[in-house]
């Protein structure tokens, strides 16, 4: 009897699922998604240091300028050229995604931390669109421009024994940004951070930071300090 019921259930299920299965068409995945536009990425000259933000391809997603998202891409941010490179598996090619076509991108780094980059117009020295990493967002954002410069250094020999005198150097820059007031550069120390506030606010902020045992010495402490200050309602004096 139990078997009969089982058969009945199977027949019923197959009847009701048959039509949707028949209706499915053989379609390629993401056939209607926006296509990525770009040019072939050519390898950078080999010097000491590292021109990319991460040393491996990391899974991430990009946001096109119209807001459409493309995910499951292998991404790598070139700090040296401020460009985003993705690996196209079909063509086995490293492709430099056109900056004009993007609004931003994000990926999860080797430590499992999600990192979000946003394309913004920078009106300071060397004007133009730049990718900024959003360290903290809100009314005022804390942004990082992960810049790497090719600088000269004392001569050294690379792995193949060639004598070289250039190196990729991290020149990260941190900014407070608000759409109304623009950018203001902040350095990684307590005094630099305090100088971004009104004089009347500096003393209470100093007190809060001391109470919270925060001293700005690096990127993490800057983010932490800013979050505490923001929570107390202090505003950046642009």
């Amino acid at each position: 009897m139990n078997n009969q019921i089982k058969y009945l259930v199977i027949i019923l299920m197959s009847c009701f699922f048959a039509s949707p299965i028949a209706a499915q068409e053989t379609l390629k995945e993401n056939w209607d998604a926006q296509k990525i536009k770009g040019a072939r990425h050519l390898p950078y000259p080999s010097y000491s240091g590292f021109p990319f933000l991460t040393d491996t391809w990391l899974p991430g997603k990009i946001e096109f300028s119209d807001g459409e998202i493309a995910d499951s891409l292998f991404l790598r941010y070139s700090s040296y050229k401020d460009e985003l490179v993705y690996f196209n598996q079909t063509n086995s090619a490293q492709i430099l995604i056109d900056k004009a076509s993007l609004k931003g991108f994000s990926f999860v780094d080797q430590n499992g931390i999600s990192r979000m980059f946003r394309k913004q117009y920078f009106d300071g020295f060397i004007k133009g669109d730049r990718y900024f990493e959003v360290l903290a967002d809100g009314e005022t954002d804390l942004l990082a421009y992960r810049n790497v410069e090719l600088t000269s250094t004392s001569p050294y020999k690379d792995e193949s024994g060639t004598l070289k005198n250039m190196t990729y150097t991290n020149e990260y820059q941190f900014y407070f940004y608000s759409p109304e007031n623009g950018y203001t550069l902040v350095r990684l120390n307590n005094n630099a951070l305090l100088s971004k506030f009104k004089e009347s606010d500096q003393k209470p902020i100093k007190k809060i930071l001391r109470k919270s045992r925060v001293r700005v010495t690096g990127e993490e402490s800057l983010i932490f300090a800013w979050k505490i200050i923001k929570k107390e309602g202090f505003k950046i004096n642009f």
């Binding site: 296509k35 536009k37 770009g38 040019a39 072939r40 196209n88 063509n91 090619a93």
Partner: peptide
Amino acid sequence: QSERFYGDLQ
């Protein structure tokens, strides 16, 4: 004057 890509087209 460069190798361009559009999706999987080269």
